[in-house]
C-alpha cells in the first residue's frame, strides 16, 4: 500500500478518470434532480402525439404511446442507477463480511459459505438472475434483491482470498495474541487491507449490474412497464426501429455511456492500485 494519497492524486491526473468521473457525476445529478427538471411526465400518454421525431418540444422525440423519450431516459437513469448502486453496495457489504468470516474463522462457516458461494458462482450472472426473477416476480425492489444475490458470491470470493492472505500476517497474530475482539480485528486490520481491491471490483461490476438489469428488463422480467428503465425502453423501441429509431437508440446510448464512464473510472483506479494488472 505505497502512498494512498499520491494514488488519489495520480487518479485525478489521469484524463480518462476525469472524463469518467465527470460523466458519472452528470448522470447521477440528472437522475437525482429529474423531478425538479422541466421534463414532462414520463408516464403521461398523449395518444395524439405518438412516434413524433425529435423537436424543440421533445428533444428526443416521443414513443409509441406519446411519452417523452428524453424524460423517460432520465427517469430510467434513476431506476437503473438506483438498482445497480444499491445492489452492488449491498453485495459488497454482505459479500465482504461473509468472505472475511469464512476466511478468518475457517471450519464449518467456511465450508457452508464457500459451498453456497461456489454453487451460485457456477451460474453465469444473467442466467442466475433469470432464475431468481422467475421466483421473485418483477419489480424494482425484486431486481435489487436479485442482483444482490447474484453479485454477493463474487465479493465473497475476493474477500475470502484476501482475508486468508491477511490472516497469516504478523499483525493479525499479534492482535490475536492480545485477544482483540473479532470486530476490532476486522475494522482495524482486515478491512483497510482489502478495501481498495474490493472497491475497484465494485466499481467495475456496477457496469455488469447495469447490463444485467437492462437485460432482465429487456427480456420482460425485470422492472415491469410502465416504469421506465433503459432495458424495457429498448425492448419497446425495437418494434419501431425503422420509423422511430430514437425510441431504442436513446436508451441504448444512455446505457452505453454510463457503462463507459464506470469502466473508465474503474480502470483508472486499478491502474493506480495495481499497475501490472491484465484483466
Amino acid at each position: 500500500m505505497s502512498g494512498r494519497r499520491s494514488g488519489g492524486a495520480r487518479l485525478l491526473a489521469s484524463p480518462s478518470a476525469l472524463i469518467g468521473l465527470a460523466g458519472i457525476a452528470a448522470i447521477v445529478l440528472l437522475a437525482a434532480l429529474a423531478p425538479l427538471l422541466p421534463l414532462s411526465d414520463p408516464l403521461a400518454q398523449q395518444p395524439y402525439g405518438t412516434l413524433a421525431g425529435p423537436s424543440l418540444a421533445s428533444w428526443l422525440g416521443t414513443d409509441n404511446q406519446g411519452r417523452d423519450v428524453l424524460s423517460r431516459v432520465i427517469f430510467g437513469a434513476q431506476t437503473s442507477l438506483l438498482i445497480s448502486l444499491v445492489s452492488i453496495g449491498l453485495a459488497m457489504v454482505l459479500g465482504t463480511l461473509l468472505g472475511v468470516v469464512a476466511g478468518y474463522y475457517r471450519g464449518y462457516a467456511e465450508v457452508a459459505i464457500m459451498r453456497v458461494a461456489d454453487s451460485l458462482m457456477a451460474f453465469p450472472s444473467l442466467i442466475l438472475g433469470v432464475a431468481i426473477m422467475a421466483i421473485l416476480g418483477s419489480g424494482t425492489e425484486k431486481v435489487i434483491l436479485c442482483l444482490t444475490i447474484v453479485m454477493t458470491p463474487r465479493f465473497v470470493r475476493i474477500a475470502y482470498g484476501s482475508a486468508m492472505a491477511v490472516r497469516v500476517k504478523e499483525y493479525i497474530e499479534a492482535a490475536q495474541a492480545v485477544s482483540a475482539p473479532f470486530h476490532r480485528i476486522l475494522a482495524v486490520h482486515i478491512v483497510p487491507n482489502i478495501f481498495s481491491e474490493i472497491l475497484v471490483v465494485a466499481i467495475l461490476w456496477i457496469g455488469t449490474a447495469i447490463q444485467v438489469e437492462a437485460s432482465l428488463s429487456f427480456i420482460g422480467i425485470g422492472v415491469s412497464p410502465p416504469t421506465p428503465t433503459w432495458g424495457n425502453m429498448i425492448k419497446s423501441g425495437l418494434d419501431y426501429l425503422p420509423i422511430a429509431p430514437w425510441m431504442a437508440l436513446a436508451p441504448s446510448a444512455a446505457i452505453f455511456l454510463t457503462i463507459v464512464f464506470f469502466n473508465l473510472v474503474g480502470d483508472s483506479i486499478r491502474d493506480v492500485v495495481d499497475p501490472r494488472h491484465y484483466g
Binding site: 408516464l43 400518454q45 404511446q65 418483477s138 420482460g220 415491469s224 412497464p225 410502465p226
Partner: peptide, 12 residues
Amino acid sequence: TELAVMLRPMEN
C-alpha cells in the same frame, strides 16, 4: 397482470 395489452388500458 403486467401484460401490456391489458395493463395499458387499465392505467388509462
